[in-house]
Design a protein around this nucleic acid. Sequence first.
DNA 1: CCTGCCGGGAA
DNA 2: TTCCCGGCAGG
Length: 464
Amino acid sequence: MLPKIRLGKRSPLGALVSTTCLSERSDHQGEGGGGVTPVPPATRPGPAAAMGKIKLHPGQKVYVHCSSCECPGVVEQHNHVDNQVSVFLPHLARHVLRKTEDVWTSPSAHLFPSPSPSTSTCPVPTPARTVSSCIDVPRRNAEEVDMDEMMAAMVLTSLSFSPLLHSPKHTDTPAALGMECPGGELSDSGSSGYWSVGHSNGSPAPSPPMTEADSGLATPSDEGLDMELEQVLFEEPVLRKRKNSMKVAYRCLWPSCGKVLTSVVGIKRHVRTLHLGSSGEHERCSRREEDFYYTEIHQREHQARPPPPAHLSFSPVAPPCAPWPGPSSPPLAMAHSDRTLPGDGALPEPAGDPGDGGPQASLLSKSAPSDSGSSLWQVRSEHSYQGAGAVFRVRSVSVGEQWHQQHSAPTRTTPASTSPPRCHWPSRRVRGEAKKCRKVYGIEHRDQWCTACRWKKACQRFID
DNA sequence: CCTGCCGGGAA
DNA sequence: TTCCCGGCAGG
């Protein structure tokens, strides 16, 4: 059967784990699953220890006594040294630690006199045995087993660090993931997948590739160590992945702060520790508040394409001096992603280190610490008052240049997130560097100028 | 000097 | 409101 084969290939634990899931889910399903379903008479329930060499693999289904009931569980970890097995009981949503001899790989006979799962007293339909105890699993040589162990150890290690990282659902309902064992293609995200498959099989996306914003929203309960680890383990690669297209930073919106950090966890920590305070219960309560005190800002690293406007997150309180004309204008202005940009459009390269400040640092956050040099990051919002001008840039003959200039004259932009007083604005508009209608069309084609240019007003067509 | 554009005035 | 232009300021 295809899923089974696929599972076996994809799972670092091999068919041992995945067939456990499969047999549990689809008992008597075709010849693939059927091969494991009939209970051999030789199967005898007993402690794993009694089985001698039986090794409990992560993800393997076992039975333990818990609350006067023999409950099925899934092996999390088998510590051969301590002779202990960490078992997860999905329908109790509990993790228990048992001695190896207290763990059964099959349901005990008195509780499960019949192979039929319907007689089970436990809520979860229980197969009569597990694969390892009843199936003649080909013994692999020592190296392979060691590889499995190493794999499992690595997987479990990473899981134990921060299961929250991989899917928020795991936080709340591990049981569901552990035992529901969704069918068909998805079955490897069931019990076996929960433990290992997603992370160690080299799958391109163990968890959906989250943007920092996503992760910020999706893992609101992250804190402390988890956040650190998230940053170390996952965020850094994400940032690196983005490097070729866009860098994202987060700006603290706290009044008179303006700290910009490159990681969502960093900014959250900053907000929490510096502004919200981090004392115990309050931390819990205010955790989500952190989201309101930072904003995501984007900076193009290379001129591959402009940032998707949907990623721009603006502060709920827009500065009164830079009203946003409408939600569509800025995206229009930035949506011409297919343009090729002139080679001279070298942007100040943040070089991954937010510390090397750009010239705009002082304007963007006067009170921010030194690393606010990353205030190269910016949220563009200034064009707002120029209204429909942005749309005209579609037919600009030098949109690339416009765009470049747009991004290279940031001193005149003010992040929508921060709300600086108007005094930050120069009384007179800084001379734009883009080619204006006059230059583009020439004075002899004055009729093609935008009206603003014709009126000697700020050009609306080629906005800086 | 050229250019962009603000401020203000005329229609 | 539309249109125009004097004048300022940056390059």
